[in-house]
Design a protein around this nucleic acid. Structure first.
Lengths: 290, 290
DNA sequence: CGCGCCCATACCCGTGCGGTATCGCTGCGG
DNA sequence: CCGCAGCGATACCGCACGGGTATGGGCGCG
């Protein structure tokens, strides 16, 4: 198994480059990395020398990626994720108290609650069940947690979530309903179409946080969890389309009406390929038998 | 896109650990890494401190992997491969003369020759064809070249080759034939079964190199390419079972007889998932239309 | 035209990586 | 039973390199 070729790029340099490539700004990237700008410039220049190709186009007013730089950004992120995953999975494999010798599952906070509850119950009832740590996270974060090894499995919702590169098993498919303030003209309907819900007067769509934590501009309210969302609807401030399960934990003042032409939402359980973990395989097996 | 969590493990340390874990011997690993043994011991100990868990069980006479160490070996190899891939793919994306702005394909030396030739011809005839570099390699090496980004696509033969983690498209399926010295008693048969070929007197199976370049022990001759193999057969020194295409470039003194119960051999074209390369997509498209 | 933003260069310092020497343990052979 | 040899750990040292501060230089903008 010899002949692993000599490495040229060090992971530290790669992290530096990725920070600069993401910020497109050396000073801001340096700040994010907790270091000064000059050594960062030098490190990136050194990386370019080692790779033998420019990665960034600098003018004194702006920074842009070259073709090679774009490739390295994409591939470098993947490599750094793999590195982080190696670290986390090793920690998890360690004997207690350093690591929890169980498995961790990620799910979007406020989503798939009862499905997850059923899964955990069923798993706990199985012989040889291991402890399961539940990691709640913001929307779109599950994939990253999975890629970086902080969790072993995740519940997510393609095609909204990116499942590229994971093994997945579908658990459930459901339609979507509109949540409307009670008393809204449309709330008496027995079904709706998406077109009915466009530009409802006085009910601007809420603004969800982006993956970087910032919020888009717009008239609607900022929202970051499900309870807030339902509350906003009941206050007559917004209307939204959500998966059917949301009906099960509604409150007064909110009416749910099926939206017949909304895309179906599937919930899948995802895990990293090459997973050699027996515990993961068992959990997935339990999930598919629900 | 903030919040990439702080790294604890450096790629250099990981390479050191992987070397030790593969050798299970600090001094040999140090030699392989081109360094002295004491700093290697220290670096691995430091990695264990950072991860907060022992990776190796040392006695003064032997070294063994712990559970966590086995996980880190597997995951660490993958991470190092990803790192190397980032490097190679970036180089390939660089403008000439540093990188070849084309694509590279790996194939086992001496296998799939005419299939590859047809593919290259067909590709060259397409509009917008890019230069294709052909990388010949030893058996079982294609997957590594693909994983580490030295090539963009590979021709391989599941289930002999591991295609786990790659996207694949089947190109051809064929049976296998036995190559026998002309005049051998079995060479007059019109078909054979695997059982017929067990323990043929005077025709011990050849010894192929393992992935690490060493050869297993045994009575047969060492062999490292197809021409040698055929020559050995014609010299009456061995007999082998190979895919049917081998018939097309036989020489005198060798007879091919179909083996009806040998497993079918499929040739697939494989490429890394998430490949964003248009050139790769086009080459694969061409291949499947052959 | 000058100011300010931003990346590069110059220079210095301290940390940490790698090297040599040596110790301590252990299995083995006489 | 003792000595030797193999191997990993420890001790110590020197230097290379990563990171900091100060400063230069190019270019938009007011």
């Amino acid at each position: 198994m010899g002949a692993r070729s000599v490495p040229v790029v060090e992971s530290r340099e790669l992290r530096y480059f990725v920070a600069v490539a993401e910020e497109l700004h050396f000073s801001r990237a340096a700040e994010r990395l907790g270091m000064a700008q000059p050594p960062l410039s030098r490190a990136v220049a050194q990386l370019e020398r080692r790779l033998g190709t420019p990665l960034l186009e600098r003018s004194s007013r702006s920074v842009a990626l070259t073709e090679a730089g774009a490739v390295l950004l994409r591939e470098g992120r993947a490599a750094l994720d793999a590195l982080e995953a190696a670290e986390h999975r090793t920690r998890r494999a360690a004997p207690a108290p350093t690591g929890t010798p169980g498995i961790a599952i990620a799910t979007k906070a406020g989503a798939s609650d009862e499905l997850l509850a059923k899964l955990l119950d069923a798993h706990a009832a199985e012989p040889g069940a291991v402890p399961v740590e539940v990691v709640l996270c913001g929307p779109g974060q599950q994939a990253r947690l999975l890629r970086t090894g902080r969790v072993d499995v995740a519940l997510l919702h393609p095609p909204i979530d990116d499942v590229e590169g994971f093994d997945v098993e579908a658990l459930r498919t459901e339609g979507q309903v509109a949540l409307l303030p009670a008393g809204h003209p449309l709330s008496t309907r027995t079904s709706l179409r998406l077109a009915d819900l466009e530009d409802l007067p006085g009910l601007p769509p809420p603004r969800y946080p982006r993956v970087d934590g910032t919020y888009p501009e717009g008239p609607g309210s900022e929202v970051h969890d499900h309870a807030q969302l339902v509350q906003l609807v009941s206050l007559g401030r917004t209307a939204v389309v959500v998966p059917e399960v949301a009906r099960s934990h509604l409150r007064g003042g909110v009416t749910a009406v099926p939206v017949v032409d909304a895309p179906e939402v599937t919930t899948v359980i995802a895990w990293p390929p090459h997973s050699r973990s027996l515990a993961v395989a068992r959990l997935v097996g339990t999930a598919t038998r629900l």
